[in-house]
Computed example of a mutant assay.
Amino acid sequence: MKLSDKAYEKFKHHLMMGDLKPGQFISQRELATMTGVPLAPVREALLRLELEGVVQIAPQRGIQIVEVSLRFIRDTYQLRMMIEKEAAAKFAGNASEAMISQLREVHRSVIARVDEVGPSDNLLKDAQGIDDSLHDTIVSSLGNELVDWLYAMNNQRIQLIRLAHGHLTLITPGTFRQVMTEHMAIIEALESHDPDAAASAIEKHLTAALHRALGL
């Protein structure tokens, strides 16, 4: 692995672990120490991260982790909506019965487990993974490398939103039922192989997710 790639991956790891916060300023030397990579490859990694919209390089001030503003949240979810509505419509027409059945089963399983023992931290973590996996599966079904790249970049913005507003954007005991209900509506539309219904169901889900992120 190139040193610049190592610096890039280490930076993202520290960001996702919460060691770096949205809006925080940090110097190149501090990043070099944090990532264990020399300054030159750190600078290369920062250019990549700036292009992806994760950091802003401010002369005389250092590197700033992008701030999560209302516009940042709205822009992120708008792009997500554009990608996922198209993907859901295509997926409804192309997905196999076995794939859709598997999606339904993992949702039924986590709902049943929560019904049995309550929304423990581990079960909520599992539910979050199921949530993310559903969206990833739908988008990846397009088989479009450019969309995959753009979606991955936007997912980094989603992660920043979660870091800043995790209590609003992650699945919690209070939102578990609503999120699972929204997901089951998407799966039912997929089972009917109705592109319009699938696009509508995912639009409703993402609109609700945006409202949760905004605290509405």
Rank of each mutant, 00 (worst) to 15 (best):
E97Y: 08
N94C: 00
H193G: 02
S192P: 01
E116N: 07
Q156N: 11
A185T: 13
A88F: 02
K85T: 15
G143A: 07
D121W: 06
E203I: 01
T137A: 10
T207C: 03
E116S: 08
I171F: 03
D194N: 15
A199R: 02
P173Y: 02
E191G: 11
D126Y: 05
T169W: 03
L142Q: 02
D136F: 10
E116C: 04
H193Q: 06
G118E: 13
A95F: 03
F176M: 13
I111Q: 12
F91D: 01
T137L: 12
E203F: 14
I187A: 01
D148Q: 15
M180E: 14
L142E: 04
T181H: 04
M99D: 14
L210V: 03
A152L: 14
V110M: 04
L210F: 09
N122D: 11
S101F: 06
I138V: 15
A88G: 06
N154W: 09
I111R: 08
A209R: 08
E191T: 05
E116M: 13
G93N: 02
G93W: 02
D126G: 01
I202S: 15
V110L: 04
N122K: 06
R157W: 00
D196R: 07
D115V: 01
D131N: 13
G174N: 12
V106L: 10
A208Q: 14
L170W: 15
V139M: 03
E182F: 09
L146H: 10
G143Y: 12
S141P: 01
D126I: 14
W149E: 15
E203R: 08
I202F: 09
E203G: 03
V117K: 13
I138H: 11
T181S: 06
N122W: 04
K90S: 05
A197H: 04
A208W: 13
F176T: 10
L124I: 00
G143W: 12
T207F: 04
L103M: 15
A92E: 09
T207A: 07
I171K: 01
A208C: 04
A95M: 02
I161T: 06
L168G: 09
A88C: 09
A199G: 12
I202N: 13
V139S: 08
E86W: 07
K125N: 13
A197M: 05
H211W: 00
E116H: 09
M184G: 08
I171Y: 01
T137D: 05
S192H: 06
S133W: 10
Q159G: 13
S140T: 13
V147Y: 06
K85H: 07
E86I: 12
H165G: 05
Q156S: 05
K204F: 03
N122S: 13
G143K: 03
A152M: 09
L160T: 02
M153S: 12
Q128A: 08
D136C: 01
E203M: 05
A98M: 08
R108S: 06
D196C: 00
